[in-house]
């Protein structure tokens, strides 16, 4: 298991380097545009060259990357070209907002998915059909539409929740809960649908296996079969989908944050990308890649723990 874990970590690191280097390489073609955007109408060939040299962007990409990577290892991601704000200070507050929404949305989605998926797989008949209908609806209805309907009904008309904005937990826990409710429901809707379908499928497969029949003949209760045996055995594929859903929810945060005007990671990334704030963009890339690799690594490790066969890959 240790060797397996080390192998996955090493693979993750290599992937991190490849993706972040590629990002820097691609961004290097835009250095002139980025500096042009900072200089605004004062931009010309000379002023761009001077500022490029001043910022050290006239060096080769491998040199720039080595310096950046050294900084990453020391926890220094540089500072914004525009505001001078250190990237390591700019990210956490934005991240907290996004995680405030994605975290609860993920937990609620997972609980709904487990409940709906297991119910559909074990009961069959009209319960299964109804559950599938709900999953299909979750798939088909765009998040954006759900968000708009929720805002119009619960924020604008009923006034139960704020239409836009975010209150931090530290500032006011009750307001925090109100500010994330509608975004969390919006996100959980689609997330639960995709995960529930996966849980249902794997549960049906498991329940058809010979060992389940054997357990039944031994008089093990249906509840125990589902909870102690079938659910655990079907957890592997479901975990993979849960991990992917988490990353997808994180990615879709941009749209949700736009609709609810949340000052999160997605909004920040979007603004920074438009501005071409190079150090922040690299910091966001490092974080995004790190998150994806980290979540996948955790899933791999969990899978390895759940299923010894998986450890050989």
């Amino acid at each position: 298991m240790l060797l397996f874990a080390l192998r996955r970590v090493a693979f993750g690191l290599v992937l991190f380097v490849i993706v972040s280097f590629t990002t820097m390489f691609l961004l290097s073609f835009s250095f002139d545009s980025i500096i042009g955007s900072k200089l605004g109408s004062a931009a010309n060939v000379d002023s761009i060259a001077a500022m490029k040299a001043d910022l050290g962007l006239d060096r080769s990409v491998p040199v720039l990357y080595a310096e950046w990577f050294r900084g990453v290892l020391h926890g220094d991601l540089g500072a914004s070209f525009f505001t001078g704000e250190p990237v390591t200070e700019a990210l956490p507050s934005r991240l907290a907002v996004t995680l405030s929404v994605v975290g609860p949305a993920m937990i609620i989605s997972a609980l709904i998915a487990l409940f709906l998926g297991v119910l559909a797989a074990t009961r069959g008949g009209w319960v299964d059909k109804t559950a599938q209908g709900m999953m299909l609806t979750g798939y088909l209805v765009p998040n954006l539409l759900i968000a708009i309907v929720l805002v119009v009904v619960f924020a604008v008309n009923l006034g139960w929740f704020p239409a836009t904005g975010f209150t931090s937990f530290a500032e006011d826990p009750a307001e925090w809960a109100r500010s994330i409710t509608l975004p969390v429901i919006t996100m959980a809707f689609g997330g639960a649908a995709s995960m529930a379908n996966q849980v249902r499928g794997t549960m049906i497969d498991e329940l058809r296996k010979d060992y389940v029949r054997t357990l039944r003949t031994r008089g093990v209760s249906a509840r125990a079969i589902v909870i102690r045996h079938a659910l655990r055995n079907s957890a592997g594929p479901a975990l993979t989908v849960f991990g992917l859903t988490f990353i997808t929810l994180f990615g879709s945060a941009l749209f949700i944050e736009q609709v609810f005007a949340l000052p999160g990671f997605g909004t920040y990334s979007f603004n920074v990308a438009l501005q071409g704030d190079f150090p922040v963009l690299m910091g966001l890339t490092a974080f995004g890649v790190g998150l994806t690799i980290g979540v996948n690594l955790l899933i791999d490790l969990a899978n390895g723990w759940l299923n010894p066969k998986a450890r050989q890959y």
Binding site: I148, V151, T164, V259, A261, T267
Partner: peptide, 18 residues
């Protein structure tokens, strides 16, 4: 002064009294 990029979000915020 809140930064809200989306025009519809601004209107919703206005309607909601924010």
């Amino acid at each position: 002064v809140r930064v809200i990029a989306d025009a519809t979000a601004i209107e919703n915020s206005l309607r909601a009294g924010e």
